[in-house]
Computed example of a mutant assay.
Amino acid sequence: MYDLLFRHVLRRIPAEPIHGVAFGAIRGVAGAPLIGPCVGRLLTASDQVLQTRVFGVDFPNPLGLAAGFDKDARGPVALSRLGFGFVELGTITARPQPGNPAPRLFRLPADKALVNRMGFNNSGADAVAARLAALPAEGRPVLGINIGKSKVATPEEAIDDYRYSARALGRFADYVVVNVSSPNTPGLRDLQQVGVLSPLLEAVREELVASVPGRTVPLLVKITTDLAAEDVDAVADMTVKLGLDGVVATNTTTSRAGLRTPADEVAALGAGGLSGLPLAEAAQAVVGTLRATLGPDRTIISVGGIFTGEDAYRRITAGASLVQSYTGFVYGGGTWARMMNTELASLLHQNAFPSVAAAVGTA
């Protein structure tokens, strides 16, 4: 049903406006006081094999909604009721910013992919903190907070900029992700260099310790598939050395290799990060590389090209403790998360795994 609607109606409407309409509908239905809990009971997979505990946090299932869908914490409860085990909010910057000029989000249906150059459009850390403070304690989902550099912050100001976001938002987070891998903020990817990244992460962790007394907030860093293999190893080594909780892998790519969409059509869309199915092979490989270096004690959250329960299962057995998707959800529709979890639970049972944790890294 959704596939027919997407092919014949939704794909004919520009991507960013329809995102706003769809997200509004999700909040209006799944976020409603009476209907919302019923939606949650209908779409949440209840198989206990999916429950998992990662860095001290209990997740009802390992499938999360990746950062980018809800940048401003406008509907995390509604989104979780669609069947997601956790929702990663953001990317959020210290200062409010409009992002890049529209149009800035495009579909490549032949590739089940998206191209975006959103530019971290969000209302800023203080506004997001106010919304999170207003969330009721009951029914609150597991929340990741993804923070990035404000566009106007100079390289010299980057550490203080990230510190501000960590201070404002850390108390609401079940985990925090430092995003240094979007291609849409000038100079951001330069922060992936270990010599620059290490003091940045140490500063954010210091801020979280100071601003969230009595609780250790897990800290992860998000990287891209565009890193060379030796740089992935360097980030993994740094993660171990600094005692970080893990890595989110991977962000969008600037590569346009191997697409089915005609090259002239792709070129006409302009710059931006590519997400979706074309990332699957590279993202899978990064998980294996990271797990070999990180060892068993640190978390990998795998994202990029996850569309089916089998995709999620392969990432988990390669070494990911949790998985995320954004583009798969866009192409799959409102019941997609339940379908994913049902298929993943079936694969875990078929292969005699009593839990998600028991399957991690077994391949």
Rank of each mutant, 00 (worst) to 15 (best):
G170T: 10
A158W: 09
V196I: 14
T185E: 07
P186S: 04
V196K: 15
S165P: 07
R163E: 15
D190M: 02
S182R: 00
Y164D: 12
V196G: 00
A153V: 10
V177T: 15
E202R: 13
L219Q: 07
V204Y: 07
G187I: 05
Y162H: 06
P213M: 05
V212Y: 00
V196E: 15
P155V: 15
G214M: 08
T216L: 01
G170R: 03
V178L: 04
V196S: 05
P155I: 12
S198G: 00
R205G: 15
P186D: 07
G170W: 04
V152K: 13
L169V: 06
V152E: 15
E157R: 14
E206S: 14
G195V: 01
S182N: 02
A158C: 12
A166Q: 10
R163Y: 04
A166I: 12
E206Q: 13
V217C: 01
V204L: 07
A203Q: 03
L169T: 03
D161R: 11
G170F: 05
T216N: 01
V178A: 10
N179H: 11
S182W: 03
N184D: 03
S198V: 13
E206N: 08
R189F: 12
A153P: 06
D174S: 09
V212N: 04
Q192S: 13
N184C: 06
T185F: 02
A153Y: 14
R171Y: 02
N184W: 02
R167T: 14
L169P: 12
V176R: 00
E206T: 14
P183C: 06
P213E: 11
V212Q: 01
Q193L: 09
R189D: 11
E202S: 14
E202M: 12
N179I: 01
S182G: 00
G187L: 10
E157V: 09
V212K: 06
G195D: 15
R163S: 10
P155A: 15
R189W: 06
D174G: 03
R205E: 15
V204R: 03
L201Q: 09
V176N: 01
L191N: 02
V178S: 03
P186V: 11
D174Y: 05
N184G: 05
I159D: 11
P186I: 08
L191P: 00
Q193R: 14
Y175I: 03
L188F: 04
S211P: 00
D161W: 08
P186R: 10
F172Q: 03
R163D: 11
G195W: 06
T216E: 10
S181L: 04
S182Q: 00
G214C: 09
R215W: 01
V178G: 06
L197H: 05
Y175W: 15
S181E: 03
R171T: 11
G195I: 02
D190L: 09
V180K: 03
E207L: 06
R205V: 13
S211H: 09
P218D: 04
L201F: 09
V209T: 11
R171I: 04
L188V: 09
P183M: 05
A210I: 02
N179W: 01
T154C: 14
N179S: 08
G214D: 12
